[in-house]
Each structure stands twice: as C-alpha cells, then as structure tokens.
C-alpha cells in the first residue's frame, strides 16, 4: 500500500516534470537562442553574442516596448473599469438571468480571436458598420472606416478581456455581503457614493489582481493589433513575431521576448510590492 507521504512525493514530482517540460525548458531554449547569431538561411547560428540585446536599445524597439506597455496598461484599466460595474449589475439580477449572462460570457470565450477581429472589422467598416449607421441617423456626414486605428485595436483588446475579467470577478460579486452596502446607506452615505465608499474598496485587492492579469494577457495578444491596429500601433508581440518568422531572425525575436519578460516581471513585482505596502 502506498503511504500518504509517497503519494504526495509522486504528485509533486509529476507537477515538477510537467512544469519543467512545458515552462522551464521552452524558456531556457528561448534564453539560449537569444544569444545565438542571426542566420537568415538557417534561423540562427550557434554562438554567444550580445548583439541581439544591444539592438533593443535602438529607438525603434524602445518605442515599441513603451507603446506595448502603454497599450497593455490602458487596455487592462479600461477593460476592468467597464467590466466591474457590469459584473456588479449582473450579480443583482435574478438567478436565471445571472446564469444566462454567465453562459453567454463563457460562449464568447469559445470564439476565435480571428473571428472576433473580423467581426469588429465589419462593424467598423465604412460600408456596413457603425460609420454607415451614424451617417444613417444623421450624426456623421462623411463616414469613413474606423479601423485600422489605435481606438479600434483598443476596443478589440477590451472585448477579448471582458469575458475573462467578468468570469474572474463574478464569484466574488455574487457572494459579496450586500448588507455592507446597506450599512453604508444607514450611516448616511448617499446611494451614488456607496459604490466608491464601500464597494470599490472592498474589491480593491481583486481589482488590482485582475488588472495585472489583464496587463500580462493583453501584452501577449497578437491578432487584434495586426487586424485592427495600424503598423505604428503594433505591440512588441507583433514585432517579435515579425522578426522571428518574417525576417527569420529567431535570436533577435528571442532576445526581445526575454527583455519583455523581464520588463513585465519587474512591472508586476513593483505593482505587487506597492499594493502590499498600501494594504491596511
């Protein structure tokens, strides 16, 4: 008979092997390749050079990385700002309607990014989309397509993140103690202020956590920037893909990926430390 201790050890070992195979090994390979020399004919040549990292400090890559961080931060903040009140509103509905919205949100997550991207392209197109509708109701006299643009790309990113954020926040929103909001009312809080005085602070930790999650997720989104954004809106993910696959420069793509990984880790670390320090 297997002892409890032996069972725990076995589970830990399997977990470690899975993590190593699916996370540590690819990461290690990427780090190793980032030091190789570029060879357009064979992707790379085995060597140990810093050239790929040095290229990052050119204005182009520096600008792209700053833009990527800005886009991811803005997208994360916007998606959480839109989704949180929506989730609270859903949690106030009857059980039947709550179930309906949750199933709908889950269904949205099944859609391919490409399908979503095309849907938004159509919605923002000059011929049949929102511009034509605005012209039809007399709000836009000379309509033009709304994509590609930074705004269109941001909408695509927010759409992608909406379901994820909603499903992360919904359980806490549904289970929250409503009497806290009622207590605030009986203590003289105007209804309009209850959200800011007690609901928002009660969700602070979750909101910071889900915003950071969204930041990381949006930083890695590839399809929306390419479909809905202009080349000057493209994020580092697109550039890395472009370099690694388009230009067959795998070492440069790997180096850019490693740098973005380090920057992302630093941003997350600083955010977590700042949040902990600010906690009551």
């Amino acid at each position: 008979m297997i002892s409890e201790r032996a069972g725990t050890t076995a589970i830990s070992t399997v977990t470690f092997i899975v993590l190593a195979v699916f996370f540590v090994v690819p990461l290690a390979l990427m780090i190793i390749v980032s030091f190789y020399k570029s060879d357009p004919m064979a992707f790379y040549e085995v060597a140990f050079v810093w050239d790929n990292y040095a290229k990052f400090f050119s204005s182009f890559y520096y600008t792209v990385s700053v833009r990527s961080l800005y886009t991811a931060v803005l997208g994360a903040v916007v998606v959480v700002a839109i989704t949180f009140p929506t989730v609270l509103a859903i949690s106030e509905l009857s059980r039947r309607w709550q179930l309906f919205w949750i199933i709908l949100l889950l269904s949205l997550m099944c859609l391919s990014e490409v399908i979503i991207g095309f849907a938004w392209l159509i919605l923002m197109s000059e011929s049949v989309g929102l511009p034509r509708f605005l012209e039809w109701i007399g709000l836009w006299t000379n309509p033009r397509s709304l994509s590609p643009s930074f705004g269109a790309m941001l909408i695509g990113l927010v759409y992608l993140g909406f379901s994820i954020v909603a499903l992360i926040l919904y359980p806490q929103a549904a289970r929250r103690d409503r009497s806290i909001e009622e207590a605030a009312l009986t203590l003289g809080t105007p209804p309009m202020l209850v959200f800011f005085k007690v609901v928002l602070p009660a969700f602070r930790t979750s909101l910071i956590s889900v915003t950071l999650t969204m930041f990381v997720y949006l930083l890695g989104v590839f399809v929306m920037p390419t479909m809905l954004g202009r080349p000057k809106d493209w994020t580092m993910t697109v550039i890395i893909s472009d370099k690694a696959l388009g230009d067959a420069n795998l070492p440069l793509g790997a180096a850019l990926a490693v740098i973005m990984l380090i920057v992302t880790a630093l941003v997350l670390l600083v955010s977590v430390l700042a949040t902990r320090r600010a906690e009551p």
Binding site: S179, E182, A183
Partner: peptide
C-alpha cells in the same frame, strides 16, 4: 446587521 456588515477595508 445580522452579518454585522463591518467595512473590511
């Protein structure tokens, strides 16, 4: 309130 509803923050 029954749950006391103290503000956790």
């Amino acid at each position: 309130f029954q749950s006391l509803a103290l503000f956790p923050h």
